[in-house]
């Protein structure tokens, strides 16, 4: 069993403190859900664990079985078993999905995977995820629909077999059928040697992939932890009741009901 331990984590973006002391212990075999209104630090937490350079850890620690994660480069974190399924996967023109996937798999193997085995593994997973069979030859995420990008993240998770998968709004941009495919894939990974941290706004994902632990992240802090009953309560009552407990909440930015793909582009543009 492995443990990912986060202690008193403070994270800045530029001058602004986004995470204000996060404590979280995740053991393999567990599925954690992180809920909370937009703009309160959920995505920041996942990106900071993976080591995105935009997020500066000002204090606190992250350890994986006593190894200091914060001193590792991003690629080292990947190779020790962390994985981030991103909200806005990057497009890399000119690089085929299969070249990329093979390189990523080889990055953690002593001996490169044989071409035959790679193709067999890839084809099997593409089929299971109900993806475009031409996917291997398309350029990485370029021209992918929102749903295809998310499924491609899941495909990578399945091929790389991380111990700790961090999934950032993996369900956005998915229609109902795709959501089932993706949740089946996550469930198929569940084992004593796999843990998952999911961020999502929708109860639907958590219904399909039942979390063992649920946390509410508000204004850079985890204000409440519990089991699945928290998901149900938030689904029914929203976050108002948390305010009533005297917890200050950051104002949610107004969200417009537009299709998710263009939304993704807009938001990633705004982030720059």
């Amino acid at each position: 069993m492995s443990t990912l331990m986060i202690k008193d984590l403070h994270v800045n973006v530029g001058e602004k403190e986004i995470l204000k002391g996060i404590d979280l212990e995740i053991k393999t075999g567990e599925i954690h859900a992180i809920m909370g209104p937009n703009g309160n630090g959920k995505s920041t937490l996942l990106s900071a664990i993976m080591g995105h350079p935009k997020y500066e850890v000002t204090s606190g620690s992250i350890t994986l079985n006593d190894q200091d994660v914060l001193s590792m480069s991003v690629d080292e974190r990947s190779r020790v078993g962390l994985f981030l399924g991103m909200q806005y996967p990057q497009e890399i023109p000119g690089v085929t999905n299969s070249d990329f996937l093979k390189a990523a798999m080889n990055a953690r193997l002593e001996k490169p995977i044989s071409l035959f085995k790679f193709i067999r593994t890839l084809d099997k997973n593409i089929e299971e995820l109900n993806m475009d069979e031409n996917l291997a030859h398309r350029y990485l995420n370029e021209g992918f629909s929102g749903g295809e990008k998310k499924r491609n993240e899941i495909l990578q998770m399945k091929l790389l077999k991380p111990q700790f998968a961090l999934l950032d709004e993996i369900d956005s941009g998915l229609d109902v059928d795709a959501l089932h495919v993706v949740s089946d894939a996550i469930n198929s990974m569940r084992s004593d040697d796999f843990a998952c941290v999911m961020v999502s706004h929708y109860e639907r994902l958590f219904e399909l992939v039942k979390p063992t632990h649920v946390h509410v992240l508000v204004n850079g802090k985890i204000v409440m932890s519990g089991g699945y009953e928290l998901v149900e309560k938030i689904d029914q009552e929203g976050y108002e009741w948390i305010k009533e407990l005297g917890i200050e909440m950051l104002e949610e930015e107004e969200k417009k009901p537009i299709i998710l793909e263009s939304c993704g582009k807009k938001e990633s543009f705004k982030n720059e």
Binding site: H52, S73, D75, S78, I92, A104, A107, R108, L160
Partner: peptide, 16 residues
């Protein structure tokens, strides 16, 4: 930076 982060988060070194 985001492209580099994406590829590195899959285990590729910065040079790769």
């Amino acid at each position: 930076e985001d492209q580099l982060f994406y590829l590195m988060s899959r285990g590729l070194t910065k040079a790769q």
